[in-house]
């Protein structure tokens, strides 16, 4: 049990990553594949955030005087996650536009039918 308690966030993060990878590899609907990519992104973001967490820590903001800097959580992973989220959104938007166009051309989202080129 102590292993579970100590690593809950990591387990959740990798759970998300693995669910996402499984969706990307096993599903045949293009929209589901894109959803899988977004799962992977969320998992990695959760991993980054939990690496910077400190037990009982506060947000790294000096909003009022007298906040001790020692109990603040690590600000760098939060900054990195901000970047990673934006990258994820960008990829998602582009992927969706490609899916829309593909659907207009083929009339289907099944990747077994969209194969003019050899996979």
């Amino acid at each position: 049990m102590s292993f579970l308690n100590a690593n809950t966030y990591y387990i959740a993060a990798f759970g998300l990553i693995f669910i996402g990878l499984y969706i990307v590899m096993a599903k045949k609907n293009l929209v589901k594949v894109v959803i899988g990519l977004s799962f992977v992104d969320s998992g990695i973001n959760l991993l980054l955030i939990s690496i910077g967490y400190i037990k009982g820590g506060t947000a790294p903001i000096f909003s009022r005087p007298g906040i001790s800097p020692l109990k603040m959580v690590d600000p760098i992973p939060q900054a990195l996650v901000l970047t990673a989220i934006v990258i994820g959104v960008a990829v998602l938007a582009l992927a969706l536009s490609l899916v829309v166009k593909l659907y207009q051309q083929y009339g289907t989202l099944d990747i077994r039918k969209i194969r003019g080129l050899k996979w």
């Binding site: 910077g52 400190i54 037990k55 790294p60 909003s63 800097p69 600000p75 901000l82």
Partner: peptide, 26 residues
């Protein structure tokens, strides 16, 4: 998980006010 081990971040947190003047370290 959940322990403080970071050296660059410590610099940011302790020196932030004097170096940048922003209340929000992130």
């Amino acid at each position: 998980f959940g322990t403080n081990k970071i050296k660059v971040a410590e610099h940011y947190i302790t020196k932030d006010i004097t170096e940048t003047g922003a209340a929000n370290v992130v």
